[in-house]
Amino acid sequence: MTENIIFLAFIGALCSSDITAFGQFMICRPIFCAPVIGFLMGDISTGLRIGMIVEMLWINAIPLGASVPIDVSLISVLSTFWVCRYFLGFQEEVILGIILAVPFAYLYREIDIFGRNFNTKIMHWIEKGIESGKYWRIDAGVITGLFLFVLRAFLFCIFAMIVGCWIYSSIYPQLPEFVLLGFKKAWYLMPIAGFGMVIYNFKSVKIPFWRNSHYD
C-alpha cells in the first residue's frame, strides 16, 4: 500500500497528460487510472467501481478538435485517492469523492487552457529558431512543452490531493444522516445512469425495424 502523495500525483499526472500531450494510449481513461490508483492504495475494488461509473458517465469526454473537455482522469484519480485514504472499504463514500473531484477537474480545465495559450509562446520561440537556423529548438520546444504539461498536472494533483483531503475530512463528519443515505442510494443508481449514458452514446446505430429519430 502506497500513500506517498508525490508518487501517486506523478502517476495521476502521467495519466492526465496522455489526453493531449503524448501518445493517446488511453491510460487517461478512468477504467485504467482509477483501478491503478486503487491498487497502489490497497483497495482495487473501490478503484474499479469508480472507474466503471466515471467511464460510463463521461464516455463522450474526449478532446475533439479545439474543445477542451473536463479532465476525467483527474476525477477518477482524486476521488479514488480520497476514498482510499479515509474510507477504505466504505464504497458509498465514493459519491462524495466524485462530487468534490468534479470542481477540481473544472479548475484544471482552465489551467489546461492557460497552458495551451502558453504553448503559443513556445511555438513562436521555435519559429524564430527555425528562421535563424537553430533547428535544435524544434526538439527542445517539444520536450519543454511535454515537461511543462506533466509538471502542471503533477503540481495540480499534489495541490488537489492535499486541499481535497482537508475539505473531504472536514465536510464528511458534518453531513446529516439523510444526505449519507442519499449517497448510498446514488451509489447503487449511478451505474444504471451510466448505462443510460452509454445507450445514448450508441444512438446512431441503425437497428432493423426500429425507427431511429437520429436520421429523421
Partner: peptide, 14 residues
C-alpha cells in the same frame, strides 16, 4: 507527440 505543443493559434503545427 504531435499534440505536445498544441496551441490555439496554429494547433498541431509544431
Amino acid at each position: 507527440f504531435i499534440q505536445t505543443v498544441w496551441n490555439y493559434e496554429r494547433m498541431q503545427n509544431m
